[in-house]
Design a binder for these strands. Structure first.
Lengths: 110, 110
DNA sequence: TAATTCAATCGTAAAATTACGATTAAACAA
DNA sequence: TTGTTTAATCGTAATTTTACGATTGAATTA
């Protein structure tokens, strides 16, 4: 998604797409589920859990961090990742509203 | 997403990612919003509305159809697209459950 | 200090996505 | 029948994504 075509879409449309993209790969879905379910959130544990190379997981974590869904805090030589609850809620509200469009459906053709 | 790595992820994780991917581009977000809001759902009108080439829109519509979120019905020389409400609901439930994980959060580190 | 551990980054290759113009095929109109 | 309209498909280029091994850098341990 280039910056140059942002005029074609609203901020909201772009933001929905960016959030959705974060869930658009099963590895990132699994990482997020793991962060919710597990007591541990250490990067090394995530690597073992998901079953992809360490550098690949690092890339996925970077993306999730960039969009704001997770945070990482350094703890010695390891890094602990966890859900950013504030942004998770924002995401839920934005996507939730988008999903609930079917309740105010105006269209009647087809 | 190759088929070969499906063993690394559950059906559910893969399905969540596939649905999310459908929303992972602002053009498809806009198309879906248009289909909900507008009385018209003719392909040509969508092309005008979004502001991308006809062939590009056709590709996006194909993806949305493939994942099952929309249906297309031929009407003369034009094609009328609309939301597949049954699958939209399935998607809402699946993604909604995924989003609501924060309510049963077990993790407490960080 | 030297060796070790952990995760980020680099470099790179393969695959997927996005976009467009051109062409095709089907339905309709003259 | 011939021409027109509409949307799908084809071919292709540019960009992005995904994945991996190798390297780096920071913190810890011996």
């Amino acid at each position: 998604m280039e910056i140059t075509k942002e005029n074609k879409f609203t901020e909201e449309q772009t933001q929905i797409a960016l959030f959705a993209k974060a869930f658009g790969h099963p590895a990132r879905v699994k990482i997020l589920q793991y962060l919710f379910e597990s007591k541990s959130c250490v990067c090394g544990d995530i690597v073992e859990e998901i079953g992809l190379a360490q550098s690949t997981i690092s890339q996925h974590l970077k993306e999730l961090k960039k969009i704001g869904l997770i945070q990482g805090s350094v703890d010695g030589t390891s890094v602990c990742y966890c859900i950013d609850n504030e942004n998770w809620t924002k995401m839920k509200n934005l996507l939730g509203e988008f999903f609930d469009q079917d309740h105010e459906m105006k269209s009647d053709c087809c």
